[in-house]
Design a binder for these strands. Structure first.
Length: 234
DNA sequence: ACGCCAATAT
DNA sequence: AATATTGGCG
């Protein structure tokens, strides 16, 4: 290891911690608790478990590069948060830093997420092959147990995924949601939108919703569906 | 500086 | 076995 001069994770940890500007962009401040629950975005920052790295709460220089924080344990809970974050960010915007921010977990570092993400992508890749019709017997590594603990959102498995935002999107101006506009046919007719989720939407969401739209070219189905993003309050 | 990935280290 | 780290590259 090169621990030459790098305060590395530690100072980063300190710096990145409670910067409201960095943390606010997406989830909690933007959406109501009801919505968060409905869409299964967990509220703020629960338990990272594992004692915070340094007892070193002192004002003394914490440039101790000699201190190693404990390895992160990816509990199913944590992983679910991760999956949720990725799902709500959309595949395109789901990069380590962003994911980390959205997850909002206390001691979580960017490399924690990066490492996990790398593995998760491999997992998704292996799942692609046999997702339709076949069986999931293609499990290679045993690392799958964790990943199996949270259902993989269907759109993770597919190909081109573009995001669109429909309805009243006054609130969200984040570049993260990709392009604004309407689906190709200019019409919102997705199973999720029209049916099941209409109740959800009717009840909780007035000001519409953003959703990620998937086009399947290969399947010939022209099937489009997926994730709904609440736009927050009225 | 970030992100991606394979390989490797712990 | 599960995470972390490293090194090469865009």
């Amino acid at each position: 290891m090169k621990e030459d001069d790098e305060p590395n994770w530690f100072s980063k940890w300190e710096d990145d911690l409670p910067s409201p500007e960095d943390l606010t962009p997406l989830s909690q401040t933007l959406i109501t608790a009801d919505l968060a629950t409905a869409f299964d975005i967990r509220t703020p920052i629960p338990h990272p478990h594992q004692p915070p790295p340094p007892p070193n709460s002192g004002e003394f220089d914490s440039a101790d590069r000699t201190l190693k924080r404990p390895r992160l344990v990816w509990t199913p809970q944590l992983h679910k948060r991760f999956v949720d974050a990725v799902a709500h960010l959309g595949i395109k915007n789901a990069v380590p830093k962003t994911i980390m921010q959205l997850m909002g977990v206390d001691g979580l570092t960017r490399e924690n997420v990066a490492s996990h993400l790398q593995k998760y992508r491999l997992y998704l890749k292996r799942m692609q092959g046999v997702s339709s019709g076949g069986h999931v017997s293609a499990g290679d590594p045993a690392t799958d147990h964790l990943f199996a603990s949270s259902p993989v959102p269907a759109h993770f498995l597919h190909r081109n995924s573009d995001q669109f935002m429909v309805g009243n999107y006054g609130q969200l101006q984040q570049p993260m949601y990709g392009q604004f506009g309407f689906p190709r046919n200019g019409q919102v007719e997705h199973p999720l939108v029209n049916r099941q989720n209409q109740q959800v939407m009717g009840g909780l969401v007035r000001n519409l919703v953003a959703f990620s739209c998937e086009d399947e070219f290969e399947s010939g189905n022209g099937r489009k569906v997926l994730t709904l993003f609440p736009t927050g309050d009225d």
